[in-house]
Structures are given as structure tokens and as C-alpha cells.
Write a protein that binds this DNA or RNA. Structure first.
Ligand SMILES: [Zn+2]
Ligand SMILES: [Zn+2]
Ligand SMILES: [Zn+2]
Ligand SMILES: [Zn+2]
Lengths: 130, 130
DNA sequence: TAACGCTGTGTAATAATATAACATATTTAA
DNA sequence: TTAAATATGTTATATTATTACACAGCGTTA
């Protein structure tokens, strides 16, 4: 697994920003925030984001087109993600549930497909919004 | 649950098209295909798509921004979807696995969140592409 | 009937998300 | 030390999705 030390300047700038936020950030809001650091174009942001996703430092919340830091610093689960999303306040939390992970990891369909990754998003209302 | 008979003209045209495809269709490819039937603008497509998603006739594949018909005509599961996606040929299949569904339905996090919906996408290689 | 709320339509404009293409630089590895 | 792989900077463009506005149809109900 790649270490943070090997990240490039742009990747570090963008990872720092995402890690400081406890909630997902969108690409163009990231772009706006890093313009003062000399990152000027969408592609510079997307390139860094893609790399960070690939090495498991961040995850993409597919239903929201937004990116959140992975807090799971020990095992770098980049390929098995579970999130809970409040449909009212849009609060997003990454879930690490051992039993659930096992069921998902062990899942086999009847088509002979070979899985290497999954993404699960739960939607509902958080405690504040119920 | 709303019946197909109650769908409007635009909704029927678009549902028919999606149901004829066994693979997900993208909004603008749908738009291209239905122009001959008098649907001219993106918004007309998105409005129909949103409605069809809402009533469970189709699902959105979030990681692909594409829409696929729900084949599960009996129970209209609109709020609990599982897909397998081949990352090579992009073949998408909806999965109905009783055990998995039970685990997901019964999942409780430790934050007191109330879930009403989930979406799970498995990624890998299908038999043809392995 | 008439007024109202609700849902859908049609159209134009625009916003938001993401990639292509090209030239160049830097790092890694044989 | 040369070649391959990875990253950068920039411009332009493609793709996905929504806002805003005017109006039509339909069922409820005053
Ligand atoms: Zn994570
Ligand atoms: Zn909430
Ligand atoms: Zn379905
Ligand atoms: Zn395949």
C-alpha cells in the first residue's frame, strides 16, 4: 500500500483538504478551495482524486458525486466500502461492521462472477433528523 | 404501488425503451432514441426517469449514471438494490439473494440511524471476461 | 360551476460533473 | 542512461443534470 510520503504536491494538498473535512467534498468545491494553492483546473483535481481513491486514502460517495477521507488508517480498505447517508442533512459516515463485511466479502452469486470490490450505501435519517 | 397503466405517455415511452434493453441506458442515449417519438429535451427524459425510479420500475446504477429496468415484477423492490457490474464489459445484473437481502435489511449501525433504503454494487469480472 | 392542489408537459437556458488532447517535466527501474 | 511510467499545466470540450417559466389536465371540494 502506498504511503502518504510518496504522494505528490497536488495529491497532498487535496488529501489534506479532504481529511480536514468530516463530510464529503465535491470536486468543484475542492477546486475552489485549492485555487489559492496554485491548482487551477478541474483536471488537476480529478487526477489527484482518482489517485487518492485508487490508493484508498479517500472514497467516492457514488450517489452524491463527492469524496470523503478514509478514516480506517490501519487496513486501507479501498475496495470494500459501506456508508450511511442521511437524506435530510446529507451527513455521511463510513461504516466498519465486521459481520456485515464478512457477509459481503463471502458473497457469491450464481453467475460465476469474480468480485474484487463492492460499494454499499445505506440511506435514511440520522438521529438528529428523525 | 403504482401500476404501469397509470404511467403517462412520456413515462411509457421511456420505460419501454429501458425494458427492451437488458443493459443500463444513459439519459442522453435515451434522449437520442426517443427524439423520433417527440421527446426533445433532457428534462423530459430526467422527469420520466425520476418517476420510474421512484415507483421502482427502473433503478439507477449510481457508479455508472445509467438506468436499468427492474425485472423483479412481483415485489417491486425499489429501495433495496444489489447489482453486479463487470468492470471489463460493463455488463450489469441485478441480484436477488435472499440471505444477503436479510443481512442488509436487518443491519443496524451503532448511531441510531433509521434506514429506509440501500444500494449495493459489486464490481469484478464476469465469466466471459475472466 | 368554479376554485384549488397536484402532477405532468414543453421549451430555453444554464449548472454541475468529468474527460480528451497535447506538450512537457519528473521519477522509477532496467 | 536510456526507456517507461507517472505527474503536471493548460485549453477546450463532453457528459450529466437542474432551474425557471408558462401552461395543460385531472380530481377534489367549496
Ligand atoms: Zn475507508
Ligand atoms: Zn441528518
Ligand atoms: Zn429491481
Ligand atoms: Zn464482462
Amino acid at each position: 500500500m502506498q504511503k502518504q510520503e510518496t504522494l505528490t504536491k497536488n495529491q497532498k494538498i487535496i488529501l489534506d483538504l479532504i481529511e480536514k473535512s468530516d463530510q464529503p467534498l465535491k470536486a468543484y468545491s475542492i477546486l475552489f478551495d485549492v485555487k489559492k494553492k496554485g491548482i487551477n483546473a478541474p483536471l488537476q483535481v480529478y487526477r489527484a482524486l482518482n489517485k487518492l481513491v485508487k490508493i484508498g486514502k479517500i472514497h467516492k460517495i457514488e450517489s452524491r458525486n463527492a469524496f470523503i477521507a478514509c478514516k480506517n488508517s490501519k487496513c486501507q480498505i479501498a475496495k470494500a466500502t459501506v456508508f450511511s447517508i442521511c437524506e435530510s442533512c446529507e451527513d455521511v459516515t463510513e461504516i466498519h461492521d465486521h459481520t456485515l463485511s464478512e457477509h459481503l466479502r463471502d458473497f457469491k452469486d450464481n453467475k460465476g462472477m469474480k468480485y474484487n470490490k463492492y460499494n454499499l450505501e445505506f440511506f435514511g435519517l440520522c438521529k438528529k433528523c428523525i
